[in-house]
C-alpha cells in the first residue's frame, strides 16, 4: 500500500466548430456509406468539450501542479483560438488531408498541448456530444488502464 501517488489536474474547455466527415480516398458512395449524415457536403457542427489532464509534483508553496492561469492561456492560444467558431476541415491545417473525426481531433489537441512547459500532459478527452467522448493518452499508456 506504499505505491507512489500521482496527482493530476483536470480542466474542461469548450469550443464550437463545424466539420464534415469525408475521405478523399473513398468514392462518393463509399463516403456516404461509411459516414452517413456526417458526410453531408455542407458540414454540421458540435459544441465540443475538451478535458485536459496534466500531472506533476504539487509545489508546496502554492499547492498547485500548475497555475491555472498558465494552463488556460496555453490552451486558449494553442487550441481554442484556432478551433472555436471555425470549420475544422478548412481552417485547421491538420485536417486538410485527415478526416476530422473526434478520434483525430483528440490526437491533434494532444499534439498541440504536449509542450505545456509547467506540467506533464497525461490525457485529452474530447466530448463531441453528451453521448460520445474520446480519449487519447499519447505514449502514457504504461501500467494498468483497467
Amino acid at each position: 500500500m506504499s505505491d507512489a501517488l500521482k496527482i493530476a489536474l483536470g480542466r474542461r474547455y469548450r469550443f464550437s466548430a463545424s466539420h464534415r466527415l469525408h475521405s478523399s480516398r473513398l468514392s462518393e458512395e463509399e463516403n456516404y456509406r461509411v459516414f452517413g449524415k456526417c458526410n453531408n457536403p455542407h458540414g454540421h457542427g458540435h459544441n465540443y468539450v475538451v478535458e485536459v489532464s496534466v500531472s506533476g509534483d504539487v509545489d508546496p508553496s502554492t499547492g498547485m501542479i500548475a497555475n491555472l492561469a498558465d494552463l488556460d492561456a496555453f490552451v486558449e492560444r494553442q487550441v481554442l483560438e484556432e478551433f472555436d467558431h471555425k470549420s475544422l476541415n478548412e481552417d485547421v491545417p491538420a485536417f486538410l488531408d485527415k478526416v476530422p473525426t473526434t478520434e483525430n481531433l483528440c490526437i491533434e489537441v494532444y499534439r498541440r498541448l504536449k509542450s505545456f512547459p509547467h506540467a506533464k500532459l497525461e490525457r485529452i478527452r474530447v466530448q463531441e456530444t453528451g453521448n460520445n467522448s474520446f480519449e487519447y493518452v499519447g505514449d502514457n499508456l504504461e501500467g494498468d488502464r483497467s
Partner: peptide, 22 residues
Amino acid sequence: RLYESPDLFADCYRDGANGAVK
C-alpha cells in the same frame, strides 16, 4: 476525483494506474 466546479478537478491515483476509470 475531486471536482471544485464542473470544469476543474484533481485526480489522485497510484502511479502507473493512469487514472483510468471505465
